[in-house]
Amino acid sequence: MTSEYRHTPVLLAECLEQLTLQTQHTFVDATLGGAGHSFEVAKRLGHEGTLIGIDQDEVALAAARKKLESLPEQTRPALELLHGNFGELDGLLTSAEVPGIDAILFDLGVSSVQIDTPSRGFSFKEEAPLDMRMDPSTQTQTAAEIVNTYNAADLTRIIRAYSDEKWASRIADFIVREREKEPFETSGQLVEVIKAAIPASARRAGGHPAKRTFQALRIEVNSELDVLRRGLDAAIRWLNPKGRIAVISYHSLEDRIVKDTFASMANRCTCPPDLPVCVCGKEPILKVVTRKPILPTPEEIESNPRARSAKLRVAQKL
């Protein structure tokens, strides 16, 4: 584990603008990390506000607490830092005993610290155990278990669906064939098999050949898309009227879920389109604030390459 949790918050100024925070507000950082966003949010909430931070990484929680408690006590909001996954948002917010929330932020994906900690097994650039669990204290299934036990059809399905990998079927076949000789234990073993599966001509473009497969395995290990759907639904329920939800996503699967969830909550009518008036009674719950996602500036991408694929979407509770 790293002793210093460094993280440059993505789209920070844009998030602060869109969240429209005021003193006395209750804000939830559903993906607290090293408190990069929350540190600046805390300054806006002031002593009368409440900041609830959620993370499934104990290292992140400890680093975030240290950073947030460095703010002057007389101007610092009430802090409630919770160990858990935002898919459990209902239970976590119930335990925090808050009646409702005024703003919530999701900064999705794996953190740079998790990637840079070899023992976590997220990186295709480091030799490490094939783990990829975001919360090893509660999760049992690892990436190694998936590549060693899933059949070729299931491996193809998750690699293709979760990463849009053109060579998914071939990579799955190579994995199944190779594990018959020796089970996969490390990231390095898997990287070599992926390289062998993808033709040399295809490896010359599009970045590291293992990037997409590693992304797919990480999503499968952590059930990230199902967790996101549960987290968004819960967050919208907990928002007070005029409260805002902001979500930063980093790949098309996440962004599509966010976009579709916001759209479905903003247009809930199920009446046939030829009816002159609505009779179903399903009133909209949200107003979509960002019809198109907010993207990072070229200057931010240059200073923080992690921001390159980021998209920010915002909605407001009616």
Results as ranks from 00 to 15, higher is better:
D260F: 12
K242N: 14
C269V: 01
N240A: 08
K242S: 10
V258T: 07
C278Y: 04
T261G: 00
F262V: 00
M265Y: 15
S264Q: 15
V277T: 14
H251K: 03
D274T: 12
R256L: 13
R244L: 07
S252T: 09
A266L: 08
M265C: 12
L239F: 01
F262D: 02
V247T: 12
V277C: 05
N240P: 13
D274S: 09
K259F: 08
R256P: 11
T261R: 08
S264W: 14
N267F: 12
K259A: 12
L253S: 14
P276T: 01
P241K: 05
H251C: 10
K242I: 01
A246E: 07
T270W: 13
S264C: 12
R244M: 09
R268H: 01
P272N: 08
A263M: 15
P272S: 01
N240R: 08
R268G: 02
T261N: 01
F262N: 00
R256H: 10
L275D: 11
L275C: 07
D260G: 10
R237D: 11
W238G: 01
I248F: 09
N267I: 05
R244Q: 01
D255H: 09
E254S: 00
P276S: 11
E254G: 09
A263N: 15
F262Y: 05
H251Y: 03
L275K: 03
P272D: 10
W238C: 03
E254P: 07
S252A: 14
C271K: 03
R256T: 11
L239P: 03
C269G: 06
P241F: 00
T261L: 01
G243H: 00
C269Y: 02
L275Q: 14
P276F: 07
I257R: 04
T261K: 06
P276R: 03
S252F: 04
G243Y: 02
A263H: 15
I248M: 12
S249R: 11
A263V: 14
